[in-house]
């Protein structure tokens, strides 16, 4: 008996009608399926992410705190940390400046070749880092395109800090620009026009109107690009020359130690990078929360 028929029945007949089974909301799965899915995700995450992370710290501390601290206090290790920080800092500044310029140009102006520029910004994501490193060797190396000029003028690019910075900037450039472009496109130019019509000079407009509107996206881009800059291996490996205490960054130092069977020391330095990843993760979550607000506004 269908529900529609029920209304036409006398009252006593309706009372006999069976109560409808408690409906299950259409947008949830049965409990068994839900737990299976959740379990699968957790198992996968544990196997591929949590377990390796734990291993890094376990290995690093396998021979005690003393060995761990000694590995970090060693001159070459300290220099590698220092070099990584310097390279990351320089490339961050460059990324912020160029990322802002590129995003501004793309989001706020119409010009021919815009789509080509957007594709170029994405290029580093699609090129293997090793190729990126090689490009700089071919350009600035001793046999490179501009190599002889730099050698004549006693400027070292390859196997020195400038080369490492170049390679790092290359692989991290898209993060800031990619983060800013959609947000700035979405926000349009109306607020800037309003500011200018109210008499604000260009720079003040940027500082008081544009920047506050994009600051969380900018920080987010900086965070991602920093994580990548500090962890970059391939491109930097090609241009660095692996000179201990001079051109080794943290990832390169880790590899060398590992190849020399100094596992505890190697994992000790690696644990620093892992720590960075955890900090990045926390900051990322916080920033994503702020960003969602920006998009909503």
């Amino acid at each position: 008996m269908s529900v529609a028929d029920a209304t036409f029945l006398p009252a006593d007949a309706r009372a006999e009608a069976k109560p409808a089974p408690a409906p299950r909301p259409v947008n949830t799965e049965p409990a068994a399926v839900r737990y299976a899915l959740i379990g699968l995700a957790v198992a996968f995450l544990s196997l591929f992410i949590v377990l390796p992370l734990v291993t890094v710290f376990a290995q690093a501390l396998s021979r005690g705190w003393d060995v761990y601290l000694a590995a970090l206090h060693e001159t070459d290790a300290l220099h590698a940390v220092y070099l990584t920080l310097v390279a990351a800092a320089i490339s961050l500044v460059l990324n912020v400046v160029f990322g802002l310029c590129a995003a501004w140009a793309i989001a706020k102006f119409e010009f021919p070749g815009k789509s080509v520029l957007i594709s170029f910004i994405d290029l580093p994501f699609s090129v293997s880092p090793v190729v990126a490193g090689l490009v700089f060797v071919l350009m600035f190396g001793a046999q490179g395109l501009f190599g002889s000029w730099f050698i004549d003028n006693d400027i070292k690019i390859i196997f020195a800090l400038p080369g490492i910075v170049l390679a790092t900037v290359f692989v991290t450039f898209p993060f800031v620009a990619r983060e800013l472009i959609p947000l700035m496109q979405e926000q349009g130019t109306a607020e800037e026009e309003a500011a200018i019509s109210l008499g604000a000079p260009g720079f003040l407009t940027f500082l008081k109107v544009t920047l506050p509107n994009i600051k969380w996206a900018l920080l987010y881009g900086v965070l991602l690009s920093n994580a990548r800059a500090m962890g970059e291996f391939g491109a930097v490996s090609v241009v660095s020359g692996h000179i201990r205490g001079e051109t080794n960054t943290m990832p390169l130092h880790i590899e060398i130690l590992y190849n020399e069977y100094q596992f505890a020391a190697s994992f000790a330095v690696a644990s620093l990078l892992a720590l960075l990843a955890l900090v990045t993760l926390v900051l990322k979550t916080v920033l994503e929360h702020r960003l969602a607000k920006d998009h909503k506004a």
């Binding site: 109306a190 607020e191 008081k208 506050p212 509107n213 506004a297």
Partner: peptide, 11 residues
Amino acid sequence: FVFQHYALFRH
């Protein structure tokens, strides 16, 4: 200038 979609400074 009063803009169609107000263009208020959202922050």
